[in-house]
Design a protein around this nucleic acid. Structure first.
Lengths: 225, 225
DNA sequence: AAACATGTGAAATGTAACATTTCACATGTC
DNA sequence: GACATGTGAAATGTTACATTTCACATGTTT
């Protein structure tokens, strides 16, 4: 029902590259995409390109204005904030749902992710990508424990946007460090089955991200980006 | 970014009819769909049919197995329960978010929906469709007040499944009546800004739906449907 | 006889040239 | 200056065809 690998070879390939290019800002927000040109670039026909684009439309990365054109979505601050709010909603829901039933093995797994993140902090140059992957894994794991496919699906579609925002407004090392400790706090609260504490902490954690994003956004605007 | 009417005429038309046929069980779960045949039936080419199907794949109503075929998704009880859980999550989140800021005008609007539902109870034969529409409107309104496009999008995609489950296992008049009063209770709790009471009541409301669904499901299985 | 390899055909996916429809913009009229 | 109309670029939709893949049947080996 969910997470189908329903795409056949070509469509999936085009999808991956296109998504990468949008997230990596090879295509700029608002830019018009010429399906024919893209098809040529990839050496394929329009069909798989159209299919890939349709998927990206559903993820909100591309907009199609009928009989006008295909454009890279221009995301604004509000969109990102809303995504973070939605993420917070899901993570709080997941925590509530599982806090009484989470096993020691699961907690070990969670803490190990944090340890891996810990170890990355000493590496120079700081491996940002790896750290972000682990960060996402940490949060995703929590949601997975809640064992609701539908919600997981929604959650991962939200992550696309979070990934995008990170690249648009690359968070600084300092601000990452500031939030790093939160993960240990979350583990502790979960171990102690202290729901109110956990909820409070995850709220702070994500609201801190929100503030960071707002700040970076305003700075970006001043730079005229 | 969301709710685009990005579909052009033909695709949208095919999408609507196809969705209607799946929800209305003109196509049975698990049934294989022949794109060529459908295209012929509609008197259009494969392109708009394929586009429409791609959209339905995203809504989880259709599954594509690459180089094998296109099938109407076979939904099971777990899927429906998960959808109801997700709905509950969103509605509780929305309530928390807006309960302190909801205006009198908004409450009037909400209560009017309930009054309309009230008035339908006396009509014979009971206009099930209309009642269900109002019911959905009641819940959707709550989510709209929370003013988060992304969450609204998710919420409406969930409603597709709720609509489906209703038709698969048409809830009885008695059980609808049983839950009817809940709506008034929810209005009261909201008016009094009593969050715990509201959350408790909406939990009961949706859990009652869940139980009903489970019961009907089991009965359906016995009938060999 | 069971496990494995190979051949074959139906059916899905992908291609490409073409037809049709629509919108944006420019020009002309009231 | 507001509105109507013409025109062309560009998107959508159509069609026939080529290619790819999987499922199943048949044959071979141990």
């Amino acid at each position: 029902m969910s997470g189908e690998i329903e795409t056949s070879l070509l469509t999936k390939q085009v999808y991956d590259v296109l998504k990468g290019k949008i997230i990596g800002r090879k295509y700029n927000p608002g830019e018009k995409l010429d399906i024919n040109k893209i098809a040529d670039e990839f050496g394929v026909s329009r069909s798989p390109v159209k299919d890939a684009i349709n998927q990206l439309v559903h993820e909100g990365l591309i907009e199609i204005i009928p009989r006008k054109g295909t454009y890279v979505t221009e995301l604004n601050l509000t969109d990102f904030i809303e995504v973070l709010d939605a993420r917070l909603m899901i993570e709080m829901w997941a925590a509530q749902k599982i806090i009484q039933t989470v096993t020691d093995e699961q907690m070990d797994e969670w803490e190990q992710i944090v340890e891996e993140m810990d170890s990355l902090l000493d590496v120079t140059p700081f491996p940002f990508e790896l750290y972000v992957d682990l960060d996402m894994k940490f949060h995703r794991t929590l949601v997975q424990w809640a064992a609701n496919k539908k919600v997981q699906e929604v959650y991962s579609s939200l992550n696309t946007h979070v990934a995008l925002s990170r690249l648009v407004h690359a968070t600084s090392f300092e601000s990452t460090l500031k939030r790093h400790k939160d993960h240990q706090c979350l583990c502790e609260a979960m171990r102690e089955r202290d729901l109110p504490s956990f909820l409070g902490k995850i709220k702070l954690h994500i609201n801190s991200l929100k503030k960071e994003l707002k700040k970076q956004w305003d700075e970006g605007l001043q730079d005229g980006i």
